[in-house]
Amino acid sequence: MDDKLIVSSSPHILDDDTTQRIMLDVAIALLPATIAAIFYFKGSAATLILLAVLTAVATEALVQKIMGRPVTINDFSAVVTGLLLGLNIPGSAAWWMPVVGSFVAIAIVKQIFGGVGHNFMNPALAGRIFLTLSWTDRMTAWITPGVDAVSTATPLAALKEAGASVPANVPSLMDTIIGNTGGSLGETSAILLILGGIYLVWRGVISAKVPGIYIGTVAVLTLLYSGFDIQYMLYHVFSGGLMIGAIYMATDYASSPVTPKGRMYFAFGCGLLTTLIRLFGAYPEGVAFSILLMNVASPLIDRYTSPRVFGEVK
């Protein structure tokens, strides 16, 4: 029997959570918002999201085959990237846009840099920015929810026009919370995105601190800017990509710091930049750019926030 005993280094037991399980959890958490997207934006949403996911997975398999790496599509990370990208485009997008976006996200941002864990930017966000910069008109052609989709302005665009107060032409606050408003497919229903976020915190996949600090920073800064107009602040919190960005993208492992303190600075930086872009930048929305900028700063943040080693004498 001796040759059958396995000899390996300790520890000899492992936690149940695996990369696969974590990615699956993120996909599960995004499910309510995905269903809402299909409910509000109908069939076109379903097609676009499906195309994004399928392209992401196919690209991952293809690139890994070409590069001679083991194919790891069963870890669900490509599914998550595809899903996030699909949720980040408008309902009016052409069918080839999610395809191009997912391809760029997986092939260029993720696989060329070494695959899962090595991407220094969030692949889905980088894909979204690539699309926005390449086809700005198409990526900002927002439509109203429903079958007779007509073009509309997002609540954030209306806020930007009006300055530091809530204009009359914005949808009701309730509509922005439940998602019955213009915007990217999956970003509009704040309440369902929060629901998924609670699931992720409960499963231990993310810490509530990152979205909490991110959203909190935006809330405080917009409150100050508007002279304590709570309604104005609430519109900023519940509209645009803040919820999906703060809960699902600023918490991306690979592209954020690993130190507990670093993650908090990262979240604060995201909130600060988002507010600055929204209030003073050329675009009405700044979530995607803010997170990407902070992604790039992550290694630096890590370096300056190394935890004090137990028993370290300084």
Partner: peptide
């Protein structure tokens, strides 16, 4: 598999290492 930088090891290290 690849490290996904989830930072769980950093969170739980009793010696506060990375």
């Amino acid at each position: 598999r690849n490290c996904i930088r989830c930072a769980r090891c950093v969170e739980i290290c009793p010696a506060n290492l990375q």
